[in-house]
Structures are given as C-alpha cells and as structure tokens.
Amino acid sequence: MGTSRTEILGFLLLSSVFLMLIFSFLPEEYFGKKSQSPYLPPSPSNPLGTNDIGEDVLKNLLIGSRASLTIGILSALVATGIGTLIGVISGFFGGRIDEFCRSLTDLFLVIPGLPMMIVLAAYLGPSYFNVILVIGLLWWPATARIVRARAVQIANSAFVEGLIAIGAGRGYIVIKHILPNVYGVALSRFVLTVPSAIILEAGLSFIGLGDPRNPSWGTALHFALTRGALLHGAWWTFIPPGLCIAITSLAFLLIGFGIEKRYRESVKSMERSL
C-alpha cells in the first residue's frame, strides 16, 4: 500500500510548516529588527515587513505557528478522543445507551459550532487551555458517528459473539478487540479534524477570544483588521498568516484523505467476502 502523490504533497507541506515551528525557537537576532516605523513593506532587513507597531511580521508568523499548531492538534486530539469513546460505547452497548448517545450526537451536530464556541469562550475567558477545551467539547460528533458505525459492525460480528460465548467480559472485549479495530477510523478522523480545529481556533482568535499571551495566526489576522493594517494596505501583515493556515489545513486534509482511503481498502481486504 504505497503513498499516493497527494499524500506526499501533504507531507511536504506539513514538514515546511513544522520547519516554521522549529525556527520559531531561534533567538531574537535571527529575525528582522523591531523597527521604529510601522507598516514597512517587505525588505531585506524585514523579509515580511513590519506590522502596525513595528514588529517584524516574519517573527510573529513563526511564533504564531506554535499556538496554531499546538492548539489545533491538541483540540483535535480531545475531540477525537471524546468522539471515539462515545462512538464505541454507543455502538457496542446498543440499546438505550446507544439511543441516548445518538440523540446527544445529533444535538451537538445541530448546534452551530462556532457561535457556541464563541459564547463559551466569552464566559471562560481567553486562554490557551480554554480554547482547546471549547473546540474539543464541541467538535466530537463527526468522529462519534463514524466510529460508532465501525463499532457496530465489529460488535455484531461473529467473533464478538464467540467471545461472549467463551465468557469474555465486556470491558475486555472493548479494550482488546473493539478499540484496536476502531483505531484506523479514529486515526483518519483525527487527522481530518485538525484542519477544522486550526481554522476554528483562528476564528476564535480573529474575533478576539484567543489567548493574547499565545498569539496564533488568527490573532495576527485579528490585529491586522482591528489595528488598521488592512486599511493601510499593508497586505504583508495578513496574507502570510492566512496562507500558513491554508497550507497547514491542506496538508492535514491531504494526508487524512490518504489515510482514510488506505484504511478502507485494508478493511476490505481483511474481511474477505465469500
């Protein structure tokens, strides 16, 4: 099962983004100097120009990668984790537990994500941790649905029946048999959730609810809009952050689609049709 071209592209993009992350830890001297004049267009001393308070845009861009990537990945982890848990419980135990979980999933699917997150974030206050929490708590339904479908498939299969016949406990079955067989979907779901998480985080920061101590790319966009960079025509302050978000999202999407495809094929081959 080889890696397709799109996946390779995805990995390339991802590596370049991670490169940015690594570079962000370089000491100050490597970046453009903080200048006295704001809104300087790109020049040798400031490769991406300066923003409204004279800071080097490139520096901010690299630093922004830290928050955007980590929040994106961590919140996707939380969301996928919750979704997998609920999906497995719902699919395996069935009955009223299943009905309850499905209603819950449908409920969360209907409630508009971003507005709800905005409300919660407004209450909890702008912090790194709160953003992760808010995204994680609201973005699990998509995963839960898909994981549940797979869990149901496994739970109804002959070998699980056989396991019950041998006398295996339900917890044992879930941990040793259901979870491993669900892992593939969960992984692909995780990778595909990251881009949504990154864009959501950027959205929250854009509206002003991001953590000011951990500025992300979204925060950069926020400042570009509210502090007048846009109106000054200083395109270098906001085009790069947006592009970075796009590249990162694309990277994860491409890789995620690749994983999903390969998983589907491997499931087909593992479960031979008669």
Partner: peptide
Amino acid sequence: CLLIHSVPSYWLSMVFLL
C-alpha cells in the same frame, strides 16, 4: 475547490477587500 476549502473565509474576505 479543496484550496478554497482550506482557507479561512474571513481571510479571503480581507484579501478581497484589499
């Protein structure tokens, strides 16, 4: 289409505005 999907809508708005 995929590209458009990866980009934040508000960022695109800013570009358009510009």
